[in-house]
Design a protein around this nucleic acid. Sequence first.
DNA 1: TTGAAAGCGTTACCAC
DNA 2: GTGGTAACGCTTTCAA
Lengths: 339, 339
Amino acid sequence: MAKIDEVARAAGVSISTVSYALSGKRPVAAETRRRIEAAVSELGYSPNAGARMLAGSRTNIFALSEPLRADSHAPSHMAFMHAMTVAARRADYDMLLLTDEDASAGMSRVAASGLVDAILCLDVAPDDQRVAIARRSATPTLFIGIPDDHAGMVCVDLDFEQATRRAVDRLIDAGHRSLGLLGGSRRAYQRSNFPPRVRRAAQERAVERRATLTAHATGDVVTNRDECRRLIRELVATGVTGLVLHAPEDVHQVALAELAALGLHVPSDVSIVSVGTSFDTGSLSVPLDALPLVPPRSCDLAVDLAIDLVSGRPVAPGLHLIAPAYLDRGSVAPRGALP
Amino acid sequence: MAKIDEVARAAGVSISTVSYALSGKRPVAAETRRRIEAAVSELGYSPNAGARMLAGSRTNIFALSEPLRADSHAPSHMAFMHAMTVAARRADYDMLLLTDEDASAGMSRVAASGLVDAILCLDVAPDDQRVAIARRSATPTLFIGIPDDHAGMVCVDLDFEQATRRAVDRLIDAGHRSLGLLGGSRRAYQRSNFPPRVRRAAQERAVERRATLTAHATGDVVTNRDECRRLIRELVATGVTGLVLHAPEDVHQVALAELAALGLHVPSDVSIVSVGTSFDTGSLSVPLDALPLVPPRSCDLAVDLAIDLVSGRPVAPGLHLIAPAYLDRGSVAPRGALP
DNA sequence: TTGAAAGCGTTACCAC
DNA sequence: GTGGTAACGCTTTCAA
């Protein structure tokens, strides 16, 4: 509740010196700074946020646009919201949450009122309506994910295509010629931007390398484990020995359980690579190789870019893709290897 | 980007009249108001948030403190964050997200800088350190959940005790004398405030009504389905015919699957009531009676109370409990009923 | 029913 | 290296 003039008086300096001492935007004598810092902690001074926003050029607040549809995969979305909030705090930014219809409408609102310095969009859909809003807005807006129409937009994402190609290559290099891809729910394919990217990349790479690849979406495993089991049996029956998984944790669990039930061993009977997953594939019943989607990596980059934009530094519009790391956990073996 | 004086000029009035027309804090002639509204939408005027915060007495921002521990149950937490954000928007409030260490430390920060009008605490632990912070802070703070030491604090929650008693009563009234309680993971019992409340209430009620009740925590079902299955078999083997569930969705699924595997029919062999769950127990393989935890109900109440506090209206410190509704889905039958 | 003007608490420019 | 002070854009009191 103490104000800057009280601090100034206590330290025996002017308010502008207090301001500069705290912002570091102007050199202040060591001794002066010491007295000011003493006064600050003595009085428990904390600059008023409203006054700062009004006088300064920044609010130090980002908006996080997260549609949070009722049926979206909570754990991954949570991981991203969390990572983004932590990344923002590291840069001394607070995070304002926009959900629901407000994830779109709220963008214009908080931008127009100057409440936030930039907007970060999660859960990006192929036909995301937020692109249109971002184009109209003067507030820097970043997408974590890639909308179909992203011309002129700044987008941050894992390089899913590269991750997928590396997964396919890894299996083919191990001698597997008949591959299967098990993706997430059908809804995810319509609503998220990356499942189709993974499928397309896998199919193209398989063609390039003259292997065969069968792609399947699973149902929602929560409500239908059997569908997932059936798909596994079907893939195995057609001779698939290399499996690419791009799906939530429960799909991985069911797939591994079904393979075990069929008496098939990983990796000697079936080799598996998990692509773009954001949970720990090392703690599954069989640890799986993975090219993971690591939320903090995307979020740190997004925050860095947002701050560049806010600071007026040039940022290339277009895709800012993160190179995937390959985590080897021994779930790929040469075709026909012994257990 | 238009400012209030431009609106005033365009409408041919003073800036104070524009302010009053928009806030409604003073009557404005219908015709004057019309011209102002026209100018507002013409110019796309939106009041500057910083200026408002500085000049006015409110920021129209709440903080949402959500520790978001890595292993917390994402879907429920998501549901609460979502419901709270929606409730706040209905009252024209934005939500600032505090997670991680910042869920505690950030409270003092945003309070001291006057960034928020009130703080709403989710994911409340029995020994929640945020209570101490709230006591020191002048910013109104509400808890959604009940810390052990909540003297002087405003807490909103489902009346878990009443819900549990009603569940136990329902089973006993149907003739079941040997009851089982299946709770969530052991970690939940240490970290959340309500699992112990449910267990205690169930045990006390069973004693009062001279029935027997065996309580079990399940392991984390994600990593250990078998433990959950074993508990069900154990309960059934000891003659339990009435089951109270207070656990995440996956525990419900595994429990129902195991009962089916044992050839037991719900409700004729085993009757079940689910307590304090926030997913739809009606869409399980067997629809279950429930006394649900409905996030929007808690959140709407919390926001209402927060606004009362911000407005200086008196709010009784202590527990603000929400009476549970009983959803009858036919999962309780008289003991010994035919299928 | 409306207007003028005094704050609100910083930041940052201009002097010294 | 430091101080004075004019913005920043709104809310609200006081006057008319």
